[in-house]
Design a protein around this nucleic acid. Sequence first.
DNA 1: AAGTGATTTTGACTTTTGTCAAAAAAACAC
DNA 2: GTGTTTTTTTGACAAAAGTCAAAATCACTT
Lengths: 186, 186
Amino acid sequence: MNPLIKKFKEYGSITPEIESALTAKIKCRTKNKGDYFLKQGQVVSSLFILETGLVRSFYIKNDSEINSWFGFENIILGSILPLFYKIPSAENIQFLEESTLYYIESNDLNEMYRKYNEMNTIGRVMAEEYCKILEDRVISLQTQSAEERYNFLLEYQPDAIQRISLGHIASYLGIKQETLSRIRKK
Amino acid sequence: MNPLIKKFKEYGSITPEIESALTAKIKCRTKNKGDYFLKQGQVVSSLFILETGLVRSFYIKNDSEINSWFGFENIILGSILPLFYKIPSAENIQFLEESTLYYIESNDLNEMYRKYNEMNTIGRVMAEEYCKILEDRVISLQTQSAEERYNFLLEYQPDAIQRISLGHIASYLGIKQETLSRIRKK
DNA sequence: AAGTGATTTTGACTTTTGTCAAAAAAACAC
DNA sequence: GTGTTTTTTTGACAAAAGTCAAAATCACTT
């Protein structure tokens, strides 16, 4: 089954009518390592899910990249600025591995919200879940040291350490690669 | 008009039926400086709005308090853990000034979502807006130095600097009070 | 206006993290 | 396998932030 629809069903029930409307709107793509899903400044975005692959989101600050999140298989992903509002994206989303993704564009998603009231329950619960993830991240950034954040990542996302380069992880943790290398030596 | 209902109307339309159901559920309280709205470990929470007053949210880490946000008048507030999920709160919410608030408990809010489908549009847009606030906060914590965060606060929430003590602001910015004092001297 | 308690500032010193440059190790292509 | 590129580690030093203790300032009560 379409993995994006499968995910939606985890958040709320979908009638056959909604399911076929969604099927018509959801597109599938394959991207190479290094390709972009979205670049800073873009106004149209999509909600997407990876069937296989790995993706990162990053910002540019003083000419250097700062990673804000990594996306793995079967997790709802997207860039909220252009998705929820019609505002240019502040982030870049780039694939770190060859990836297959299913996506729905913001215009189409908003049309679904307008047409089918039940879709708003799914949208609400999805947004609420994302709030929880973001709150955890804020707490982690505010209350944990870089070393604690690294150990947390090691424990809860060991695959991240395996699949993502040290430099990218350091940037995500908010420290320099050299510092992370020294933390890891311990 | 009930300020919480007024706020809901900013997010979506409300039928007279929904409005009267909400009116029946929304309660009003006055709290003194130092009183708690919610303590760590509590499972039931509420969505609330301040008519007057000021509130902060904080975590305990190594026996010291870390502020995670401040709440001013006419902004939707709450603690998402017990609100969206039935999980004990990780945060404490305490009033910094005498405050008048309007609130709806999570059980009642969820009942509204179940009964009135249109309420889910409001819930979705509220959650989406909160996602945006949280994302901005994550970006700020990750890409800005303490000094930049302080200047940002000065520019966009000058009232915060006026009404909130230095120690609380330092904790919010993720630095020690002494460091903030030194930054401010510049 | 004086006294009390809370908040803010200052000073000396320590710890953590950043910076820059170079070496070592690993990954990849031919 | 050899050479090339990318990633990771190491070292020496600089900058930023933390710690602890004491002094100064401010706010509030009487």
